[in-house]
Design a protein around this nucleic acid. Structure first.
Lengths: 343, 343
DNA sequence: TTGTAAGCGTTATCAC
DNA sequence: GTGATAACGCTTACAA
């Protein structure tokens, strides 16, 4: 004899007997199949209401082979750059009865692959943001993960849909903006070395205009990284800094403020992403805007197309939009060689 | 004949036949039940490896009556105040094989209840943050949602565990800090009128010290609300403003900066929550720190205790910690009646 | 239009 | 220690 653990509420069988029909009929009614006599349908519905019946998600998943769940794996759930996409994904998916299962690899590159597999097992599809995973590993992993859409990095080799940002173009726009303002000696606060998008950003900074110098400074992707980089930025005697992203830029702005350095008077600062805070920093941050929430929606569109039987191998490259705010200004006439304030 | 849709990979049956054992034995091996002959266990394991077998989460859920999933319902997935708790919850739950299913009620109070029910159906437990739901409705809803833990608001009537912030105490600390600095005319930028925690915050602002005036200004919970409130704040001729939360405070700081108002020279500003950005605003924000990530972990602890058969009806009240930063300073000698800068 | 029954992939009880 | 086998709650092809 099997175990008799009926912890949950009414089952389809309960509704069936109460309405005096078969379970199949109840199922048809619950799923809105039109082939049911209205009289009976009504009886079933009221029986279901009276019993407060709700179909078991687990049982449906097993029978249908669908969990109605999308996975969303990111390296850090607290990073605001991922929130917009999460919301866009969640809202778009919810419109079609899908929910989002989140997973956080806690910036541990080694955990990304097993976590991705495990998460995918519980879902019908996966949105994968794994910036640190070695390219080789990623390309081998992706096929097992299907349906999957890769976020914020490239892996054309896998022939799978992906949603990437044209990091290089964004950096070029920012650079052009700065050189247009007369900046000639510019620092780039680099992201994590293993980060794919950091490499892409750098590729946008090749072929500098004549007379422009770029200094690459090690940094990272988080607030504290930007904050800690401020000293080195000042030492570098540059008139402008391009931060890896807005989060880093915000950390940097905070530290520069503490040093009493005037932004943009003494140094111009740019970010990347246009997180919601960027509008409200002091000064407001010039940045390359990435439509995060829309990317979440787009990711869902691709996945649902695959789930519906399609094969979109398309690789979408989102071009960021330059947003100029008050953190950048014309370079002072003597951009280098001057002694800067530093308490 | 039933449908033959074997979209997924190897099943327990495949492993069983390959290893020449019964499915029961495979199940025992996969679940680490020690009652299996080591020889056989090894054979099963290698068969599973060769077939790249992974147990079906849906089938396990159905058989076990457990989904190994916790729901997390919040009014706005983009609000940073919820990210810390989400991460704490996600990390703590992951340690025990649980995942987090997120849901966003998109600030629509009317959606909170049905969404909560629907989300809970897919999970073993629920972390519910529903600040706008009418108290009556909430108290009636909670029992159906068990195991559930209520976040950021009170509903003792339901006799269920909850994790709340002592909003009143946080506000008192901030107020005391401001009056200690000589502020006598202070504005409070109120949160959404339906928000439970707004009411709680206000209750901490009763019994003002003699000579202290408090002006309540309508506002909201988001960046733009704080930004838009700046004009009214300046018109109110106060020497200090307490914002509903850090997000509002950041919006306000941005607008004040645009107006050329000196913070804290002309006006002191406080927030609430201590979101990661608060350290890096210009000036850095004085606030009442809420340990979000820890609250996420605590929520998980309660839920797992219930899932394990316990009955923690405890109501945890987290006392925020006053964090003084540069956005607050001594009031100027003539705090009111002076004309303020306003472009 | 409705009912019957097989099957989704596990787990767990009970005999052996 | 291992294997049948019933159950978990639902969907669906097919028969009636």
């Amino acid at each position: 004899m099997p175990p008799a653990r009926r912890t949950t509420g009414a089952t389809i069988g309960d509704v069936a007997s109460r309405a005096g029909v078969s379970r199949a009929t109840v199922s048809r009614v619950m799923n809105g199949l039109a082939t049911v006599d209205p009289q009976i349908a009504a009886r079933v519905r009221s029986a279901a209401d009276e019993l407060d019946y709700r179909p078991s998600a687990a049982a449906r998943s097993l029978a249908l082979g669908r969990t109605h769940t999308v996975g969303y794996l990111v390296p850090d759930l607290t990073n605001p750059a991922f929130h917009g996409a999460m919301r866009g994904l969640s809202l778009a998916a919810a419109d079609e009865g899908y929910r989002v299962l989140v997973a956080d690899s806690a910036e541990r590159a080694a955990d990304e692959a097993p976590l991705a597999i495990e998460t995918r097992r519980r879902c019908d599809a996966l949105v994968l943001c794994a910036p640190r995973m070695p390219q080789q590993e990623l390309v081998e992993l992706l096929p097992q993960l299907q349906p999957v859409i890769l976020l914020n990095r490239n892996a054309e080799e896998a022939g799978l849909p992906l949603l990437n940002v044209d990091w290089a173009s964004g950096m070029r726009d920012l650079l052009r903006h700065l050189t247009g303002l007369g900046h000639r000696r510019i620092a780039y606060l680099a992201g994590p070395p293993a980060s794919a998008s950091n490499t892409d950003r750098l590729s946008g900074l090749r072929n500098l205009p004549a007379g422009v110098e770029l200094l690459e400074l090690e940094c990272g992707a988080m607030f504290t990284d930007g904050h800690e980089a401020a000293g080195r930025v000042l030492d570098a005697e540059v008139s402008a800094v391009m931060a890896f992203n807005d989060v880093v830029a915000v950390g940097l702005l905070g530290a520069l403020h503490e040093f009493g350095t005037d932004v943009p008077g003494e140094i111009s600062v740019t970010g990347f992403d246009d997180i919601p805070y960027a509008r409200f920093t002091a000064p407001p941050l010039t940045t390359a805007a990435v439509p995060q929430e829309e990317m979440g929606r787009l990711a869902w569109q691709r996945l649902r197309a695959i789930l519906a039987g399609g094969h979109p191998h398309d690789r979408v490259l989102i071009r960021p939009r330059l947003v100029t705010r008050a953190s950048t200004a014309r370079a002072r006439s003597t951009p280098s060689g001057t002694t800067r304030s530093r308490s």
